[in-house]
Design a protein around this nucleic acid. Structure first.
Lengths: 312, 312
DNA sequence: TCTGACCCATACTGGATCGCATGGAATCCG
DNA sequence: CGGATTCCATGCGATCCAGTATGGGTCAGA
């Protein structure tokens, strides 16, 4: 019951935090009202009501001025701390220099791309904090949609109208075959249908590349025989080179892995766009904190330069 | 301008602290409204207004429910901390077990009386904090009137109608003369007028005993010749014993100091009431925190037992 | 697919609050 | 010591907000 009463008083107190703080600092109703940008009578009566409602006497008249009572003086530091807490919280939402950015990104990008982006950005704005999550495509998008992150660096980019995307770099998808494969020496673009009956090395479900290969095979009306579902691109490439099957992967920046041959695909949509995704302004996340917007801009500007060389 | 904006948002946010917190905890407008004890539409619109005014999107509809946006989730801990700060502050004012008591007291009482009172009280309520100030009579009362303390243990008790007093013990004032003084062997009550022309050892201005002797000498229409103004009673007593002059002091509990003789005074008002003083409920302090009221009660109950033996 | 249940948002009315102008009280200065 | 000044409190009219009833939208189950 004590605490219920305290809660009641707290709730009555909350709306008048600023008034109380200003009044405490000035000990002068008229001046405090000026500081608060409100008419003097408003403040005067608001305080009067507050005291009547709570039963506390926080200020009292002394001559023609006012001053805080002992109770008011005891309460003041708590009020100011509460206001400071609020201001700090609001600041993180509204200041471009102090906010927090939640970023989820592909495992591949964690090696060099994300560190490079962060390094450059933090040089300019060292007080922006980051919450980083490294996870596959599907998880990233799910987290983004659920509000668990502000931005996703991933691939491919979703069609979801609630998510907005910016392409930073587009890799070509290639058919990767072992060097002794019958098509290895074809020297031309091939269609996926030409390897329809072969064993495929795929990525695990939920991976972006897997989603892309699913789309392509669906469009080519073929159901690949799955030899293995790899956890990452490098593993799939290696297994293909080992002869376990063919696979469809982004072109390797440094050239085909020794023991493998990369063939251009004639199938439509054989590309892997890498980009940054964020909730659409309209429906998804609503308000975008300045720190997030600033980092997004940074990514859009510098991502295209960093990504091509640093993914594989 | 950034910070002005933050302040504006903070001010808009403050009144809705509880709503936001409840909504965040439940993620359910109807249930949050129940918790807050308000109709559902009220909460619904309050949040809508808040978001419109601030430009922030803190909650969003998701299907037929609501959930916090990322901004809301970032803000939440700050809001809860702010509420906790407030609740703690209010608790100190309204809980008898957790408040703070500002106590100012006579230097003499600091030796044993105040420690004894605190020891007993803190055994029952260990979470009540104390702010202690040790200072002479006039300073104590000034501090009390200015709201710098809740209670004063001092002497004498003021006539000020803004201050309420409770007598805990009354000491007789005696004329203290050296053992070879002409009145030393009188063996009867004497009037101050009988030593009108002699040198007096007084206490310094601002001391309670000095105030009392001023009153008595005024009433007896005599202006004492001041041999010395002592800082404390013991010094005055010692100097009187040394023959520097006569003095008027409270009776020494353990009997007259060797080398001195104490004579009862026939003058009216030759008493020194010791008691506890606090702002009157009506005009002075207004609201009395429970912790203060409880300690005051403790002092009233146990003071009379402790003071007689522990002063001198 | 459609009905029912659930839940958040909106229309309308009564009361509290705000802003303006003014009163009352205390202090300062001549 | 008295007028002027400063400052907080209080009436009065307009506005905003809360409470009640209802609408719109979504999800679950048949």
């Amino acid at each position: 019951m004590e605490s219920e009463d305290a809660d009641r008083v707290t709730r009555l107190l909350a709306p008048r935090l600023h008034m109380l703080a200003a009044l405490a600092r000035t000990e002068h109703v008229t001046r405090a009202a000026e500081v608060l940008g409100m008419p003097q009578p408003t403040l005067s009566r608001a305080i009067a009501r507050l005291q009547e409602d709570t039963g506390l006497t926080l200020v009292e008249r002394t001559g023609r001025g006012v001053r805080l009572t002992r109770a008011g003086r005891l309460l003041l530091p708590h009020v100011e701390r509460a206001l400071a807490d609020l201001a700090r919280g609001v600041g993180e939402l509204t200041d471009a220099d102090r906010g927090r950015v939640g970023l989820t990104f592909l495992p591949t990008l964690g090696v060099e791309v994300v560190p490079a982006l962060l390094r450059d950005f933090r040089r300019a704005r060292p007080d922006v904090r980051f919450t980083l999550v490294q996870e596959p495509w599907a998880d990233s998008l799910r987290r983004l949609a659920a509000g668990g992150a502000d931005l996703a660096l991933t691939s491919p980019l979703p069609a979801d109208p609630l998510l907005e995307s910016t392409v930073l770099h587009t890799q070509a998808l290639r058919l990767v075959v072992p060097e002794h494969h019958r098509l290895a020496a074809a020297g031309r673009a091939v269609a996926l249908a030409e390897v329809a009956g072969e064993e495929f090395v795929l990525l695990k479900p939920g991976r972006g590349v897997r989603h892309l290969t699913d789309l392509i095979t669906d469009r080519a009306a073929l159901t690949p025989k799955v030899a293995f579902e790899a956890d990452d691109i490098a593993t799939a490439r290696g297994l293909a080179g080992a002869g376990l099957g063919v696979t469809v992967l982004p072109a390797r920046p440094r050239g085909p892995l020794p023991g493998t041959v990369e063939l251009a695909l004639s199938d439509p949509g054989a590309v892997r766009p890498i980009g940054v995704v964020h909730p659409a302004r309209g429906s998804g996340g609503g308000y975008t904190p300045p720190a997030v917007a600033t980092f997004l801009e940074h990514v859009r500007r510098h991502g295209p330069r960093l990504i091509p060389d640093l993914t594989g």
